[in-house]
Amino acid sequence: MCVTCGCSDDADSKITNLETREMEHNHHHHTHTLPDGTVITHAHHHDHDHNHESSQIHAQIHGTTISLEQEILGKNNLLAAQNRGWFKGRNILALNLMSSPGAGKTTLLTRTINDLKQQIPINVIEGDQETINDAEKIKQTGCKVVQINTGTGCHLDASMIERGLQQLNPPLNSVVMIENVGNLVCPALFDLGEQAKVVILSVTEGEDKPIKYPHIFRASEIMILTKIDLLPYVQFDVQRCLEYAKQVNPNIQIFQVSATTGAGLESWYKWLTEKVFSCANLVNA
């Protein structure tokens, strides 16, 4: 069990291509986050030498006299930089969508794809611990989608995204939406190579989430407050929530939307399309 994020040592991530239904496993590849923030990623192998090496790694990781000088999140950040270069070279805008479970990421994503698919080609990497349920919903929009199941892992990492992109093979001049595992803690710690992080908060969760989980709001360029159609039926102080978000991140841009009624979506769509064209202009400059 990892000290910080709780990901199991025997996490077995798998990637499913929704078009071919082919599944790729990554046996026992996992990342340890230590109390000082250092991250070690390694994979278990089945031969004697590698098992011995793996046991030594675990002894180091879980021992009380550990001494490491590795850069914080160094391994993941290196892979994320490679992903970022891959996106840039293909003029692809990649966004990392993060939220608690049930905040409405998938509903917002399917509505966004359906409303914008005539203007912007959008493809999706879907992250969940298990099932391909959300990927099936995304597939019904007609876009390409790859499901990454993390097993007991609580976040996507740059290595998973690299493997997912090989299956997704998004076209040039497009958008890749990465729907992260539902969690307000660990997803914010792992750079995936995205151009921007987007945190999604619903009015059913409580207005104090930005100060309870400040890192994810501090790391995000955009906050989308969803399910505003439910405001008459829930106790949620919108103004206080916005103040908390700005307190944590004065530069965060906030959209208030309902994916059910369509309220507020035009502002989100305007930002997204401008981001796409800005990305294209930077490449062509």
Rank of each mutant, 00 (worst) to 15 (best):
K197T: 06
G102S: 06
G127P: 01
D12F: 07
K275M: 11
R21T: 14
H30E: 08
R21L: 14
T64Q: 13
V3W: 08
D10F: 08
E205N: 07
D47A: 06
M177C: 12
N17C: 09
F190S: 04
V283T: 05
L109E: 03
E221T: 07
G89K: 01
H30C: 10
S99D: 05
D229G: 07
H215W: 13
C154V: 08
H62A: 13
N123S: 13
N133V: 15
Q129V: 12
Y233L: 11
G63Q: 06
E205M: 04
Q247Y: 11
N251G: 02
K209D: 08
H42K: 15
M1S: 13
I66E: 15
I161E: 01
N96H: 09
L109S: 04
G182F: 01
I122P: 00
T4E: 12
A81N: 12
T4W: 04
A259M: 03
V39Y: 10
F87Q: 00
E69G: 15
H28L: 11
I254L: 01
Q118G: 12
L78C: 14
C2G: 06
R84K: 08
A43G: 14
E19L: 10
H29R: 13
N83Q: 02
A59H: 14
E24V: 11
K75W: 14
S55W: 14
E19P: 02
G102F: 10
F217A: 05
Q167W: 09
I224S: 09
A80P: 09
I224E: 08
V39N: 15
G85L: 09
P232V: 03
C7K: 02
E162G: 07
G37I: 12
A80N: 09
L78D: 12
C154H: 06
K139P: 07
M98A: 06
I216T: 05
I72N: 10
S100N: 03
E130Q: 10
N133Q: 14
